[in-house]
Amino acid sequence: MSHHIVEVKNLRHVYPDGTPALRDISFRITHGESVAIIGANGAGKSTLLLHLNGYLAPTSGEIRIGDFPMSKATLPDIRRTVGMVFQDPDDQLFMPTVYDDVAFGPMNLGMPGPDVEARVRDALQRVGAGHLQEKAPYHLSGGEKKRVAIATVLSMSPDILVMDEPTNGLDPFARRQLMGLLKDFHHTKIFTSHDLDMVLELCERTIILNEGAVKADGPTREIFRDEALLAGCRLEKPLSMQGCPVCGK
């Protein structure tokens, strides 16, 4: 199933004002992997994600999603393959009701009515939000919004799920619920996050970005044990790997 592969080769991106955001990034993510991209603020995580569905075009370098090299012609296919969930669900949910929002993608794909309906129902069921169908987005809680935002992408049945800061702003219960949900997805998953405990639980592989370059790429546990590396990139060990504050172990 080669179409679940994400391959980035020597990607560079320079903003119009001349600031380099990404310098020579290369990695390959294969089918079913769950990968975290972490780094300090301004390390280039969001810029990188925006390349993965073709919103930003590389200054130089190459991106392949599955069988398609990124180009204007393959853009519609790539956007269907890569489901992108943005950080702020208020940006993602722009339609008047949850149903309309989840149906937005399938309708743009030109699906017939009954298919759209089946997909919407299925996607909402999978995130446990079937009962929210007719609600307006501003009547939802933070956790509900996030789950519905994921449903808006699932309804397009993507092969690869890309999420920017999935647990940002959620209360502990909603965070836990969301993590349970994400664990069950068998898509290729790419997350960016500052929530390193979540990364530890969900991702077997981690890529550290620092000042627009890949600083480390390897198994999550190994990377999180390297304190010098983490500190050099303005990061720190996840709390669950730090000693107990009471007994000091």
Binding site: Y55, R79, F86, D90, F104, N108
Partner: peptide
């Protein structure tokens, strides 16, 4: 900036300028 992000989210879900209503 928010409008730009919304536009991204719309493009990511196949928006081509047409609105389909149900």
């Amino acid at each position: 900036l928010r409008a730009e992000r919304i536009h991204m989210a719309m493009l990511a879900r196949g928006f081509t300028g047409e609105f389909h209503t149900r």
